[in-house]
Amino acid sequence: MSIQDVDDKDGEAFVEMDPTGRYGRYKDLLGAGAMKKVYRAFDLEDGIEVAWNRVKLRNFATAPEKLKHLYSEVDILESLHHPHVLSLHTKWVSSDGATYNFITEICPSGDLRGYRRKHKHVSLKAIRMWAYQILLGLDYLHTHEPCVIHRDLKCSNIFIKGNTGQIMIGDLGLAAIVDHSHVAHSCLGTPEYMAPELFEEDYNELVDIYSFGLCVLELLTVETPYRECTGVAQVYKRVITGVRPEALSRVQEPDVKRFIERCLGQPRDRPSAAELLCDPFFQELNGCNCLVMQPVGPAREDQRQPVDAAA
């Protein structure tokens, strides 16, 4: 169906419908990147809001590898079903071949990086709950058959439903599906979050654990790891020689620092997601149900733990 105003009988108008007429896209733009735009949409059958991801295929005319990564992300999403991994509802190419569209769950509060920077005074318990859910998602990916290695885990690729605190891992465009050896060889990702062995192009799913440790560090300090570096080459040199981000020195709580260091250890010593879920770092959660998160209420001033070095 071509773009047009379609009355949704609810006071607003859709500007586009999917070929089946089930999903209607509003004008509201939720996010935009170099290749993809995400709009607020509505599922008429289930009566829920969703995210309409719209990609102009002409943008990939000179970048076939990026188009391959996009199709890979959607194909991977289609096979995954977990509360902490963004789910895919449907996908299609427009009738004129101009756009590639796919419908996913909606996270109205955006990515975790932006959410954390907006809310600078959260308790350490809240950060532990976010971290716990990320690990649940990683454990699912890493134990999936076949194993899925994200390879680009960072706070801007992790999303949150702010009203419930539910965390979901997304942006699987650089993910790799590996066989029973669990070994991959391509050097892909964001340098500040890449494990040393990823640069050497011989690694397994534990590279995601390294990136996860840096995500926890970012949630604590509200700053991007290695922001003291002036370029990618400097980041690379520090990572492969084992120099930690300066932000780690500003983490005061010994158990928190120990947990992050455990994630950043050598591959042979680095724990799996399942092992980290049993770490004493999460003891404070006291068996709370982190699969279906409850809203995180504001801590009383006398109980709030200072975790924001930048605030």
Rank of each mutant, 00 (worst) to 15 (best):
L86E: 07
P64Y: 05
P108K: 10
S87V: 02
R54P: 02
R113D: 09
I48K: 08
P83Y: 05
P64F: 00
S87Y: 01
A63E: 15
N101Y: 08
V93D: 11
I103E: 02
T99P: 01
W92I: 08
V55R: 01
L80Q: 14
K68A: 08
Y100E: 07
H89I: 04
H84E: 03
G97V: 10
A61G: 01
S87G: 10
D96G: 13
S72N: 14
S94E: 10
L70Y: 07
T99V: 14
E73H: 03
N59E: 12
G110M: 09
S79A: 07
W52E: 06
L86N: 08
W92P: 04
N53W: 05
K56V: 06
T90S: 15
E65F: 04
W92C: 05
R113V: 04
G47Q: 02
P108E: 09
S79D: 06
A61Y: 07
L44R: 13
E78S: 15
H82E: 05
R54A: 11
T90I: 02
H81P: 01
L67R: 15
R113T: 11
K68V: 00
T99N: 08
E49R: 01
T90P: 00
R113S: 13
E45K: 07
S94M: 04
Y115Q: 05
V85W: 03
S109I: 08
N101H: 11
H81W: 02
S79H: 07
K56A: 12
H89Y: 15
L70M: 13
N53E: 01
V93A: 08
G110K: 15
V93P: 00
W92E: 09
A98W: 07
L86F: 03
N53S: 15
N59H: 12
V85E: 04
E49L: 00
G114I: 05
T90N: 13
R54L: 11
T62R: 12
I106T: 11
T62W: 02
G97S: 13
T62H: 12
W92H: 06
L88P: 03
I48Q: 06
F60L: 06
P64N: 04
V50A: 00
R113Y: 14
K56Y: 13
L70D: 04
Y71M: 10
I48E: 08
L88D: 04
E78M: 05
G110E: 11
E105Q: 09
L67Q: 12
D111Y: 10
S87N: 15
D75G: 13
K56T: 09
A51Y: 01
L80A: 02
H82T: 05
G110L: 14
H69Q: 14
L77H: 01
L112D: 10
G47K: 05
K66S: 14
E73M: 00
D75F: 02
Y100C: 12
K56H: 14
S72A: 11
S95Y: 12
R54W: 09
W52Y: 13
I106H: 05
S79P: 01
L70P: 00
Y71Q: 15
Y71H: 15
W52I: 06
